[in-house]
Design a protein around this nucleic acid. Structure first.
Lengths: 248, 248
DNA sequence: CGACTAGTTGAACGACGTCAACCGTTGTGG
DNA sequence: CCACAACGGTTGACGTCGTTCAACTAGTCG
């Protein structure tokens, strides 16, 4: 079921255009827009790919939220990154035969698979696109470094504040948040997996943030009531997102 | 002060050869070996590059140990990765204008700088090398994901055991460890920055590991006395290192 | 010899985890 | 339509891991 979308809304075109350091040529844009996408839907909690898989395709998030995670042998889970529409969460599979992480759906998720062959053919025809995609993976790396600093060296209150700041900014960029409010159907248990703390403690920190008037998270919706305060609490500096047009 | 080394010991050749999925051609090896290197030496604790720099070159570790780190605003430091000889710690600077991390020398460090221009020219002439270098950065990403799991979800005892396992394996690969013993002139304070714990606690965990007969760390030397036990304690599975020839 | 640095250890404290109870909502089947 | 199970959120009590502070030791360098 190949699904062709109009070029300007095609996820690859939007993403690469926003990431690359040069303006895409017509043929390059065309090549991206005509990449054959295999669309698939996942319910929350379902896994898309698993550690030790050897995929021959990678995928883009079309809608919904995905999470990269790893688990220890005794089953403790650590979420390493969230992926918003436009992201290419397992792009490394193109050059790394066996996956070292799993990716699951956080909310209802629609993704588009692209075969490695098709990508390699495109790169052969349009070598500049390699730089652009490479850059996309490097930006993901930058996010993960900030995540490491956040989880390693900030206590849970600023840590959670930082996470909410990042999510809000990234969702705003792709048009999924407005007025500092976004759809975020995530359980407190899952939040704990991302922050490296227990769900009980998540609950307490959420309460603190709520009673401080910074945010509310309920009914699957995150609302930031005091952006300046949240940003300050999380020591949030968006430089590491490598945005090209800075706002807020 | 350009410094030309014999091709088989040239750090780029060794590294890319060990990382790439295809055998390098003569001209490719030649191009790597003749990359002009600007050699520089750093004392322990000195910074090589700093967050917010906009470098026009990147570097390879020639000898010694380097560390990538970030700091919070109030000065708490988190080490994100260690780099052994052959590694390309800031290769992302080629496609990411402004650095989002700093790199410092852990022990006496010798590095070789290569200008971005020279690299780009080489990639233009030998497009397959792009894949190889890309793959090198992806493997670094894999290490950082395991690091995130380790620091996020393991307690300090297994966490430290895991770190020592990784360092030992990586140093063995580049010939800097033998008999499960290696030069590791690192203070307990710095170890704490890597593991996200205080130096006092590092001391106590080291004592536990020592009294359990697993390792000793003194006089700038790490000795593993019971590799099987250390590996078990750290739940260490080297898959994430993406080695091509597995040993031990 | 004194000053400095890294390591070592104890004691008190704090952050976060664990356990357990309870509540509210949702969904399902009799 | 109601009963009830299942699940996520909320809260308290208590335990543990790791931090902080502080004192002391040992090695090194001038």
């Amino acid at each position: 079921m190949a699904d062709l979308l109009p070029a300007d809304t095609h996820p690859f075109v939007r993403k690469i255009e926003s990431v690359s350091l040069f303006a895409l040529s017509g043929p390059e844009r065309e090549a991206l827009a005509t990449l054959p996408l295999q669309v698939a839907d996942y319910a929350a909690q379902q896994d898309v790919v698993l550690e030790h898989d050897r995929p021959n395709r990678c995928f883009a998030v079309l809608s919904g939220l995905a999470a990269t995670y790893k688990t220890t042998r005794d089953g403790r889970r650590q979420v390493l990154a969230y992926h918003v529409p436009g992201d290419l969460p397992d792009f490394q599979s193109l050059n790394l035969e066996v996956l070292d992480f799993s990716i699951c759906a956080v909310s209802a998720l629609r993704i588009g698979f692209v075969g490695h062959d098709a990508l390699r053919a495109m790169f052969h025809a349009h070598p500049r696109l390699v730089d652009a995609f490479w850059r996309a993976t490097l930006i993901e790396g930058s996010l993960s470094r900030e995540w490491m600093l956040n989880n390693g060296r900030r206590e849970s209150y600023p840590r959670m504040a930082h996470l909410f700041c990042e999510l809000m900014v990234r969702l705003e960029i792709v048009g999924l948040a407005s007025d500092h409010s976004c759809h975020l159907p995530i359980t407190q248990y899952e939040l704990g997996d991302a922050l490296g703390i227990s769900s009980v403690h998540v609950n307490r920190i959420l309460k603190e943030l709520r009673e401080g008037g910074l945010i509310t998270l309920s009914g699957g919706r995150l609302k930031v009531h005091d952006w300046a305060a949240l940003r300050k609490a999380g020591e949030f500096d968006p430089t590491y997102l490598h945005l090209r047009s800075t706002d807020s």
